[in-house]
C-alpha cells in the first residue's frame, strides 16, 4: 500500500507516495529523480549512498523513507551554493579527489558533516571520518588533500 510522505530534501519539501518497504535511497533516486546519491551494495558495506539526516551522515540504503519524514535530508544536489560550487566540491575537483566520481557524493557529505563539527581536523581525523566510505580509484590521498584544502577555505570564510 502506497502512503503519502513528505520529505524535506535540501531544504525543499517533496510530497510523494511510497510503500513502507522503500529505503530513502530508492525514494531519492526513483521517486524524486535525485540520482546524485549512488549505491554500491545496498547493504551498508560501501558508503556510496551516504546522505545527511539532520546533519549526521547516514546510509540512505539502510533507512526507511517513511522514518525520515520531517527530518532535514541533505544530498549532493544540495551542496552547491546556487551556481557556485561548495568549497568541498571545488577542492575535490581541483585535487583530483573525484576520479570515477562514484564514491564522491557520499564522501562529500560525510566530509561536510566532519567539517561542521570539527573545522580543523588532523589528517588522521579525516581518515577516520571517511573510513566508512570506500573508494576504489584514488587511494584516498587526494581526497584527504581536498578535505584539508576545503577546511582551510571554510575557516577563512568563517573569519
Amino acid at each position: 500500500m502506497k502512503q503519502p510522505i513528505s520529505l524535506i530534501v535540501n531544504g525543499e519539501r517533496y510530497d510523494t507516495l511510497c510503500q513502507p518497504n522503500l529505503t530513502l535511497l530508492e525514494v531519492l533516486r526513483e521517486n524524486l529523480q535525485l540520482t546524485g546519491t549512488k549505491h554500491g551494495c545496498e547493504l551498508g558495506e560501501c558508503g556510496a549512498c551516504a546522505v545527511l539526516l539532520d546533519g549526521e551522515p547516514v546510509l540512505s540504503c539502510l533507512v526507511l523513507a517513511m522514518e525520515c519524514a520531517g527530518q532535514q535530508i541533505t544530498t549532493v544536489e544540495g551542496l552547491a551554493r546556487g551556481a557556485e560550487l561548495h568549497p568541498l566540491q571545488a577542492a575535490f575537483a581541483d585535487h583530483g579527489a573525484a576520479q570515477c566520481g562514484y564514491c564522491t557524493p557520499g564522501i562529500l557529505l560525510t566530509a561536510k558533516a566532519l567539517l561542521e563539527r570539527n573545522p580543523c581536523p588532523s589528517r588522521s581525523e579525516v581518515r577516520e571520518a571517511l573510513s566508512g566510505n570506500l573508494c576504489r580509484c584514488t587511494g584516498y590521498l587526494q581526497i584527504l588533500d581536498a578535505v584539508d584544502a576545503a577546511a582551510q577555505v571554510l575557516r577563512e570564510e568563517q573569519r
Partner: peptide
Amino acid sequence: RRRVDARAKVTGETRYADDLN
C-alpha cells in the same frame, strides 16, 4: 589542472548507466 568532467562529478550530475530513466 581540474579535469574537464570534474564539475559534473562533484555535483552528482554525471549520469552513470543506472541514473538513466
